[in-house]
Design a protein around this nucleic acid. Structure first.
Lengths: 270, 270
DNA sequence: CAGTGGTCTAGACCACACT
DNA sequence: GTGTGGTCTAGACCACTGC
């Protein structure tokens, strides 16, 4: 019943939007059943991905989306609920639903789990950022694989140090695929205020949506020790992060070394 | 309207359950408004906490709970949805909703984020556990505080080593409040199969619901190096965990040292 | 088959924000 | 006031499980 309608699709709205997709039936192995709200979620996701609404912008109201997709408001609501749970979208009562952004979100560093031994990162003030270098090069195998590139593809490499209250704390190397980030320079990074991921959104249209980290304890080598102001061999936290845009597409590889005297990596389990 | 009913409360059901709590109104500062489903969630939570349903048991069906609390099924559903999102209960279509448990849950170690460099923990087979010691003692200040005890209160301390495929990988010290865990012995721990938290559930009625970890890189001292088979000064991952039961009550302090050659600590960000 | 959770709808009303 | 998301209800039907 949910798949049939008396009236034809509204020609006034975007013609590419038809009524809700019929539940696949009659297939032999897996019926490939998908709830309506999941299909709506995918449609909204596609619009987000296509940049129909920019980060920080409101998406259409639930009623509008319900009309566009020819489903009830409740179904749209459930789709948006899941998007909100995945931090792709932010609901604000009385105002609307907004595309999530790394900029001006009430937490400054969404993916940084480092906390000072007492207090929080906010209270330590903005991190002082020092770019060590930024260059284009060809991906080696161990860089290409996590980024789903081929060995030899162009990548951008960036090295920087983050200091909190004057104490160098994080040394990280960042690798970005050359294509999407064409034109990124050390200059641009140095003059930018706010999270790096916010710049990626505004300048390159790349929104980091989730990330995975592999954490190890390692000994500081000579170069790292120098930059972080520790002695060679000192234990450091090694944090390897792969950050993803929509569709689980990897868009950044980051290898960080964290000093964990004075700070700790915080994780909540449930 | 949701607070008035034509028929009196069903005397057949538990007399302590009245109709839904009226939304507080008329209060001056904060109206202390709480949605009905949140109130229902709290009621279910209290039943879980009181042990009305044991881990692994099914809780009453949505219809039953709706009747008991005199609300619609949809409201109960939303309450259970949140409990399921917090991993306190598990929904199984066609069967019912079950109290979450650390035993026989399809993941063996719910709170252990360590992964082998290739494959997963399951494929490495069960961890070999060796209890180094287990004794009762009085809490020092730095043990008492995280456990919300007073200095000098009785605590149980346990030290053990976990080995994967013959390689000692984790050395951990565990502190438990003496009261709830009265009677726990090294003997009992040694003979027990399966996760430690499963034993806590069955033997002591203590269900660990969530946990927080603080992670640092440290150098192995003499004792740790010996037990983990590394050289003194080798970098190790220090993982300090506080595990909580219901009501955010801390019930365990755990300080682990992880070898991170061959394994890594895995974290997903979103 | 009956009972469970899962989906979908439609309508009412509430809380909040802007204007 | 109008429009937004948030809550609550009632009823219908679907999908899965086990008798």
């Amino acid at each position: 019943m949910a798949t049939t309608f008396l009236s034809p699709p509204d020609p006034a709205s975007n013609a590419s939007e038809a009524g809700p997709v019929a539940v696949a039936s009659g297939a032999s192995a897996t019926p490939a059943f998908s709830p309506l709200y999941q299909q709506i979620k995918v449609l909204i996701l596609q619009s987000l991905q296509a940049g129909e609404w920019k980060p920080g912008d409101p998406i259409p109201s639930e009623m509008e989306l319900a009309a566009r997709f020819r489903v009830s408001q409740g179904t749209v609501r459930k789709a948006i609920d899941e998007l909100a749970a995945e931090n792709l979208v932010v609901r604000r009562q009385g105002k609307g639903t907004f595309v999530a952004t790394h900029a001006e979100q009430h937490v400054q560093y969404r993916f940084l789990r480092l906390m000072p031994d007492s207090g929080d990162l906010q209270s330590e003030g903005p991190a002082e950022r020092q770019i060590i270098n930024c260059k284009r090069l060809r991906a080696t195998a161990d860089i290409a694989r996590p980024l789903a590139l081929r060995t030899g593809d162009a990548v951008l490499q960036l090295r920087r140090v983050l200091a909190f209250q004057g104490a160098p704390t994080i040394l990280e190397d960042v690798w970005l695929p050359g294509g999407p980030f064409k034109g990124l320079t050390a200059e641009r990074l140095a003059t930018h205020r706010g999270p790096m991921y916010a710049l990626f959104e505004t300048e390159f249209g790349v929104r980091m949506v989730r990330a995975e980290e592999k954490i190890r304890a390692v000994a500081a080598d000579v170069a790292s020790a120098e930059l972080l102001g520790v002695t060679v061999g000192e234990p450091l936290l090694s944090v390897e992060r792969i950050a993803y845009t929509y569709n689980d597409m990897p868009m950044e590889l980051r290898r960080g070394l964290y000093r964990t005297d004075g700070h700790y990596y915080s994780n909540k389990l449930s």
